[in-house]
Design a protein around this nucleic acid. Structure first.
Length: 405
RNA sequence: GGGCAGGUACCCAAGCGGUCAACGGGGGCAGACUGUAAAUCUGCUGGCUAAGCCUUCGGAGGUUCGAAUCCUUCCCUGCCCA
């Protein structure tokens, strides 16, 4: 195997990273692999508790992809075992633990989604239950001897929870150790992660050293802000763009980001090269509206292709800008007890447009309900389907149904 | 094991015998506005056969005409002591 010159690899690797710890070791590892012709083992742990990958995850995944393209060995560790612990890194609460079966299943979903970014041909996937599950109590104790409680409690989310008198499960302290054991087991040369993973990544170094291995280089990547522009992108905050989402949804969500995030997204989540970025920065300043459309199209294209990107734009213009009904409105046929008449509220709830009659009533009162584009204000309105169907019902801006009978 | 402080709707958090479906904030939803699904402003935010009724304030009992509020007990969390 021949690699690009070290200097060139280094430049690519460093692009878009937050920290490389320590830089010199990365250089010597690259030099070593260039000499021996052996690729470096680059590890990325994935948390199978939330198999919905989003743009935030793609930042790290794209970095791993880069290593693949440079000829190194990508190793994806599915945390089927650690998923049972549930890490709270960067979060403020204990995570719900999963069963092994769930965690396995999620792992498969994870891989499927990650393949949108990674090169699945050149990847090794390992489940950490393979080695963690085989450890006995004695092994765990010995592993735990390699660090101290004080050090563990230094991790900022633990410290924060202690400061707020919130619970920390004892098992949670084991999480960084388990993740570190993964690095030992696969003899990782490099481990990637978001900046919120820094502590766990460094623990890998500590434990590798303690077991006589060369410590891994830790590379952290920036955390992508979510659609709200302040919190980190995460599923639980609902401010995310999922990699598996339909094109229209990705497009729409991206258009809702605050303008100051446009460049950031290009930088961290798109394929834009260094040269493009300069131009895009300019464009973001001068014409944020089009820059944002371009961003949305670029990202939809990455995951769904050019055609989908065009369709998504049309859909957006049609539904959001011109406020028209989308092309494909689901059809619904209400179930009637007798006759052809149905109360409006019942109809809305039956069609799944509102979650209860009460909510339907509120929607009507707020002027959110339209029948064939005409606003309805009477919540006692009764519809005679024999007369009025087919009927286009709309609640709010985005919920539509075509009523037939 | 002992002492203390807590557990309220999606989240945070008031309420501490009736006027409580429960203040306030966040989030969510809707309306107006907008290049936008952003920002801003306004409203709504348990369910129902709907001016009435039903279920809800950690669980189970109890006191009372009446309990989120008082008592008993159990469960859970944090802090201090051991």
């Amino acid at each position: 195997m021949t690699f690009l010159p070290v200097e060139e690899q280094l430049q690519q690797i460093r692009r878009g990273t937050e920290e490389v710890i320590p830089q010199e070791e990365l250089i010597s590892k690259l030099e070593g692999s260039a000499k021996s012709g052996k690729p470096l083992t680059v590890k990325l742990g994935c948390d199978p508790s939330r198999p919905d990958l989003h743009l935030g995850h793609s930042v790290v995944l794209r970095k791993l992809r880069q290593f693949q393209d440079l000829g190194h060995q990508a190793v994806l560790i599915v945390g089927d075992f650690t998923g049972m612990i549930g890490d709270a890194s960067g979060r403020s609460k204990t995570r719900p633990a999963l069963s092994m079966a769930e965690t396995r299943q999620h792992g498969a979903t994870y891989f499927e989604q990650a393949s949108k970014v990674l090169n699945p041909e050149k990847m090794q996937i390992l489940y950490n239950s393979e080695w963690l599950g085989a450890m006995g109590f004695e092994d765990v104790v010995k592993l735990a001897m390699k660090t101290t409680v004080a050090r563990m409690l230094h991790r900022d989310d633990f410290a924060a929870r202690r400061a707020r008198d919130e619970p920390i499960g004892l098992h949670e302290l084991l999480y960084p150790l388990a993740q570190a054991q993964d690095s030992v087991s696969i003899r990782a040369d490099i481990e990637l992660g978001g900046t919120d993973q820094k502590f766990n990544l460094l623990m890998g170094r500590t434990i590798q050293k303690a077991t006589g291995q060369a410590p891994q280089v830790c590379i952290t990547l920036p955390i992508l802000e979510g659609l709200d522009g302040t919190e980190k992108m995460s599923k639980s905050l609902g401010n995310y763009v999922g990699l598996a989402e339909p094109p229209e949804s990705i497009y729409g969500k991206l258009l809702s980001i605050p303008d100051r995030l446009i460049y950031r997204y290009f930088e961290l989540a798109s394929d834009a090269g260094q040269k493009d970025l300069a131009a895009l920065g300019q464009m973001t300043q001068e014409d944020p509206r089009n820059a944002k459309h371009l961003l949305a199209a670029t990202i939809v294209k990455m995951y769904h292709g050019l055609e989908a990107a065009k369709r998504a734009r049309c859909h957006f213009e049609r539904t959001v800008i011109r406020k028209e009904a989308p092309k494909d409105v689901p059809t619904f046929t209400p179930t009637l007890l007798e006759g052809s008449r149905i109360g409006l509220l019942t109809l809305l709830t039956q069609a799944g447009l509102t979650s209860s009659n009460g909510q339907a009533r509120r929607m009507v009162q707020q002027g959110a309900v339209r029948l064939d584009a005409k606003r309805v204000t009477d919540s006692r309105r009764v519809i005679d389907l024999a007369q009025e169907a087919p009927l286009m019902v709309r609640v709010g801006k985005r919920r539509f149904a075509r009523i037939t009978w």
